[in-house]
């Protein structure tokens, strides 16, 4: 059984790495959760690959407060996400507590 991997994203310029690492981890049958905060919530609206990431990873969510602070309407849910994935920093806590491996990007 492969280890699980949680990825905490705060840098908006790392999306290609988020995708690359998620794909590689899924190819090893790893469970992958990704949480975007602050500037990195721009990825949900500006990265064409974001909906694909949501399909590949087991769980993708964004910090709704950050999303609002970046100037987005919280009712404008990015393609690929459900309303419940517009979440809080508790998602970061889940990554730390419940996943075998941790990566920040």
């Amino acid at each position: 059984m492969s280890k699980s991997l949680g990825i905490f994203v705060t840098n908006p310029d790392q999306f290609k790495h988020v995708m690359g690492i998620t794909k590689a981890a899924k190819a090893k049958c790893s469970k992958v959760k990704v949480f975007f905060s602050w500037d990195a919530t721009h990825n949900a609206k500006k990265e064409a690959g974001f909906p694909e990431l949501c399909k590949i990873a087991d769980d993708v969510s964004i910090c709704v407060d950050s999303y609002k602070n970046m100037g987005y309407d919280i009712n404008d849910i990015p393609e690929g996400l459900e309303e419940k994935a517009m979440a809080t920093q508790a998602q970061h806590g889940i990554i730390i507590e419940d996943y075998d491996c941790y990566l920040s990007l």
């Binding site: 590689a24 981890a25 075998d100 491996c101």
Partner: peptide
């Protein structure tokens, strides 16, 4: 990335 994931694990 494959090598990176191996290293992370």
């Amino acid at each position: 990335y494959d090598a990176l994931v191996d290293k992370i694990f």
